[in-house]
Amino acid sequence: MKKRGVGIGCMWYGIGNTGLPNPAGAFVDWKDDATVSLMVGAADIGQGSNTVLAQIVAEELGVGYEDVLVTSADTGVTPDGGATSASRQTYISGNAAHLAAQEAKKVVLEEAKEMFGVEKNQVIIRDRRVFVKGQEENYKSLEEVIGGCRRKGKMTIGHGWFNPDTTGLDGETGAGSPYDTYAFATQIVEVEVDTETGQVEVLQIIAAHDVGRAINPLQVEGQIEGGSTMGLGLALYEEVKVLDGKIKTPSFATYLIPTSMDVPTMHPLIVEEPAESGPFGAKGVGEPALIPTSAAIANAVFNAVGIRITELPITPEKVLDQLAENQ
């Protein structure tokens, strides 16, 4: 018989390295043609940090995303960005890039202030145009203002670095403030358990993630879907089996990860509760996406057939054993 159940898993996750300094840096060079060279140490391994960092800089400088040329993870020229780990690059390298952009922007705002004869906080830069608040039609092009800087010998460059505000953990009590900001998530999963075979099939995953601010919603969805799929693999298939010091599951034929056929309907939900310390309010989502999934699946299995499996993966053998015990 096939029985359905629903389960919930919740998590919170500290962004960045635990109780340790983990800074990242960035350089911005705003060129004569108003395009921007952004140099960051952050390694984009597919999560999209190059895209997100370019967006942050473009937003701050009032230029297009395509105006920002990113050089990343080149130890010959880029400042240290720390590891692409701990779901930290959008938050930490993002802050560094934001600060670098702000520093370069100051020079341009100063020049614009003189050109327009107004206070600096009256100047707005948007869509490659510089104008005084409320007088959008009397704009100067960014090239013109940057050109003004050049004629006076002013460089429009900036650097920035960010290190989250943390403390180490007390060796005795474990007390401390190990992270500057936290991500939160709740996932709800629906499963179908075959009581004859012990097979668990996940039918849908609803994943709600507080990411502070989704700089790139499509990428955030991609992180949530991919992370949840890893969580599904952790819950149902993936197991490193070790015998006599040797790994018995060293290949994809023995260590099973989800295929396209195993992935249920996904409902990624982006929750935006801006983090004060994040770039435009952003936090991280990479690892949080996989954390609550296995708990939600285990809870859904309990809801479906009344068994508590506390050791992953939830294999058909374990399900059948426990079902037999319960009878």
Binding site: G226, S228, V263
Partner: peptide, 19 residues
């Protein structure tokens, strides 16, 4: 569509956006 890519493993995307 999902069956046609079932022989291609992806560890990043969760396949949904590929489909």
């Amino acid at each position: 569509i999902i069956r046609s890519i079932s022989g291609n493993l992806c560890r990043c995307t969760g396949y949904t956006k590929i489909a």
